[in-house]
Design a protein around this nucleic acid. Sequence first.
DNA 1: GGTCAGTTTAACTACATGGTTAAATTAATC
DNA 2: GATTAATTTAACCATGTAGTTAAACTGACC
Lengths: 213, 213
Amino acid sequence: MTSNQRKENSSKTAEKILAVARKVFAEHGYNGTHMDEIATRANVNKATLYYQIGDKDTLYANVIHQVIGNVAQDIVRAVAEARTPEEKLKAYIACIAQAVDKNPEIPPIMMREIASGGVNLPRLVVEDFVSVIATLMGILEEGTKKGIFIETIPFLIHMMILGSILLYKGSLPIKDRQTWLPASIRNKDKKIKGNIANEVAKLILRAVKKSRV
Amino acid sequence: MTSNQRKENSSKTAEKILAVARKVFAEHGYNGTHMDEIATRANVNKATLYYQIGDKDTLYANVIHQVIGNVAQDIVRAVAEARTPEEKLKAYIACIAQAVDKNPEIPPIMMREIASGGVNLPRLVVEDFVSVIATLMGILEEGTKKGIFIETIPFLIHMMILGSILLYKGSLPIKDRQTWLPASIRNKDKKIKGNIANEVAKLILRAVKKSRV
DNA sequence: GGTCAGTTTAACTACATGGTTAAATTAATC
DNA sequence: GATTAATTTAACCATGTAGTTAAACTGACC
């Protein structure tokens, strides 16, 4: 076994590369991203990048895993901790919103990934998605059986939740950039900035719950 | 003035190029699309492509315009024809769903466009979006004033509607491709195939309407 | 201070891709 | 059937980009 400082420095550069790659892939997508840009923005020689991580596909796979790998487990855990279907559904939504809040690279990357039919998605990640949807199906079924929820199409509900959050968050840059956009549209939702989870949860629950109290 | 047949043939090739470009851009996105592939799949020499249409940006702008240029006007018109806020909201949703049904290139292209912050969107198209959202704001405000709807965040509602449809439609290829996906997820929503408009409308109205009859 | 493994670097290669050009082809008009 | 303008084509060019290589550097250990 050799030095420690070397290893630390080395893993530091690797992390820096990963962090930068994450941003760049989110900005430009897989095809729009150039290894040179990543190297430059990470203050690293391109060969170092290849030495530390590998080719473009590997780098992208790493980013994907880092970005959306853990969300699934979070969701499953958070849902398990909640008691009623209603609480579970709230936890489900909060988890997704929180994940997106924590790393804003999720919307662009996921939307592009869906757009391209998930060609670049590692099997492991797809399996994560499956477990997430399965969780939601469980929640909805339980709710329906208990007479709390109406009958629904789980896959659609999931896309409604995910779509709301992804598109809402993902559109903020456009909205902010288009300075000539009518103020009525730009300002109307300032009040909920950063926390749409509650609003989405409210709407989804209203849509799904049978009786209103 | 010269021949007519020439012009017809010429415009035919141009249309063929446009049609193919649409598909290819939808499949691979702007950066992932190569002019050679378009030319090949359109059975046209690459120089012909450039002669008929122009460079890549121009071609893409044409595609964008063709794909999502007319939807906005459709929505505004359809909404204007409806009477009550509830009917208007239904028309709004039906219009979007119908547009997506008619050309399945919308989801991938729009999602990627949002993902990249709308950098490639012609101003005209952005203006169309604005008019759409403005329309929805009108509907929601009217409904709220009349005491039919609860108070909401229009921009979020729009993203909820659009997100549901885009992600649902856009994810079908993935779902279908992943043959190893649990049958419970794959089949659960066979019944609504091709017509999620009603389902989305039902859910959104449940979410937004004040009293339930 | 010499050696050695891990790490970084400048320079380079191979190839793909957006775009061009000049010549060939086509069909209408005389 | 010669002319002419619109259209198509094969071959070409310039540039950008993923990936490589061999040499230089770094710091721990003897």
